[in-house]
Design a protein around this nucleic acid. Structure first.
Length: 409
DNA sequence: TCTGGGGTCCTAGGACCC
DNA sequence: TCTGGGGTCCTAGGACCC
């Protein structure tokens, strides 16, 4: 039986969820921004959920009045007309479309709708892989009707079921594998269904820019452009040895396979987390000495959050790390592996504090983060690790060096 | 007017072991 | 005294994705 893989992408997910609440904003440029609050939520809340749909459009906050360092998470299609798009800084977006309405991200609401559309899918097609809150891969191969019209029939059914349950629209691509399905879901947006067969490779995929390949980002794209390779077709025409020479064994070989539409990665329904982290960008850059009280409080809160996340999800970690971003946007990380697994706030705080001491704190800080890695399920810690760690205890470092910030953390 | 927060995966060098 | 690889773990940084 021919493999049929679907990629489903919710249309402007964050914005569409807000439009369900505020239907009076339909058709207007709206952006959803992470970070700082811009809506007077107290005012909105005071009017009650039912009254939300009657708030006059003129009462919504505009992008031109936005103050803060956030980026755009999602823009409605009306806002995209102005060149505004996700990951764009708010201030830049405000210049392009000052009249756009800004709403903050409501994570609880997003999670609820995410669960709802995913459970709608698995009731129809159980082999589904999560790709974040608004995307999934679905294996159509063995689903009854999954092969009809190349997957078109099942895709339509899923689209309609999601709309009936949530009021939200999505776009679906169905293809012989994940890579092509992912590209296909972009072909017709919003509310589109695109079917790609192996034979369509040359006509539909080769004319596309290399950047359209999931896994080729700005850096790789730039390097390809320098080699005069712009389209996927041009990439396919390269000798694999040439690509390997420029991009390394793994990446070079991968690029060649991908350009020929070959990808045998399975749809994976379950996976274990690798790390859990919390980070925050400050409202203003902070100085390690002058703002030490504030920094210390934030640092402790991040540790508490990471510990809380581990405990709530039932994991313990053996590596604790920190991340810093300076005012010049350069970041550094430090981490330390423990002798024992932990999810304890105090232990995490202590190790994170040691990591912080290994980093220069002379420049202003923009961001601070705490990360837990090398995770296992709580209660499944391998015992032998402790003995190994003891043998290697020369690694566990004690910090004696005195710095201006020594007493800080 | 700069650039969020949560992740995964890869690379590369050094330590250490066999 | 000098010289091997292979394998694993740890750390730091970076590319990329949603």
């Amino acid at each position: 039986m021919l493999r049929r893989i679907a990629h489903l992408d919710m249309d402007a997910f964050f914005a569409s969820v807000e439009l369900l609440r505020y239907p009076q904003l339909k058709g207007l440029p709206v952006v959803i921004g992470g970070g700082r609050r811009t809506v007077d939520e107290a005012l909105l809340a005071a009017q009650g959920e039912r009254a939300l749909r009657f708030i006059p459009v003129a009462d919504f906050p505009l992008l031109k009045d936005y103050v803060g360092r956030g980026v755009i998470t999602t823009a409605t299609y009306a806002a995209r007309q102005f060149g505004v798009g996700s990951a764009m800084g708010m201030m830049k977006a405000a210049n392009l479309c000052p009249q756009a309405i800004v709403l903050p991200v409501d994570f609880d609401e997003i999670r609820n709708y995410s669960r709802l559309f995913k459970s709608t899918i698995t009731e129809i097609a159980p082999l589904m892989q999560d790709r974040g809150v608004d995307e999934v891969y679905i294996d159509f191969t063995e689903v009854p009707g999954g092969q009809r019209e190349g997957g078109q029939v099942l895709a339509r059914l899923i689209q309609k079921s999601i709309f009936d349950k949530t009021g939200l629209t999505c776009s679906i691509g169905v293809a012989p594998n994940k890579l092509l399905a992912k590209m296909a879901s972009e072909f017709q947006k919003p509310k589109g269904i695109s079917i790609v067969h192996e034979a369509d490779l040359q006509a539909l995929v080769w004319p596309l820019a290399c950047r359209k390949i999931n896994g080729i980002g700005p850096k790789a794209d730039e390097k390809l452009a320098r080699l005069n390779i712009h389209t996927i077709g041009e990439l396919a025409a390269q000798d694999p040895a040439f690509l390997i020479a420029h991009f390394g064994k793994a990446t070079g070989a991968w690029m060649h396979e991908i350009a020929w539409g070959r990808d045998d990665r399975p749809v994976v329904t379950e996976s274990e987390p690798v790390s859990m982290s919390r980070e925050t960008t400050f409202d203003r850059d902070l100085h390690a000495v002058r703002d030490k009280a504030e920094l210390g409080a934030i640092f402790t809160r991040l540790c508490e959050q990471v510990a809380g996340d581990l405990q709530r999800k039932g994991y313990v970690a053996k590596t604790i790390g920190i991340k810093l971003r300076y005012d010049d946007f350069k970041s550094v990380t430090r981490d330390q592996t423990l002798e024992q697994f932990t999810a304890d706030t105090k232990s995490i705080r202590k190790i994170a504090g040691l990591c912080l001491k290994r980093v220069p704190l002379d420049k202003r800080l923009r961001l601070l983060g705490v990360r837990a890695a090398t995770l296992v399920k709580a209660g499944e810690e391998p015992i032998y690790e402790q003995n190994r760690a003891l043998l290697q205890s020369g690694r566990v470092q004690t910090v004696t060096e005195s710095t201006a910030t020594d007493q800080l953390f």
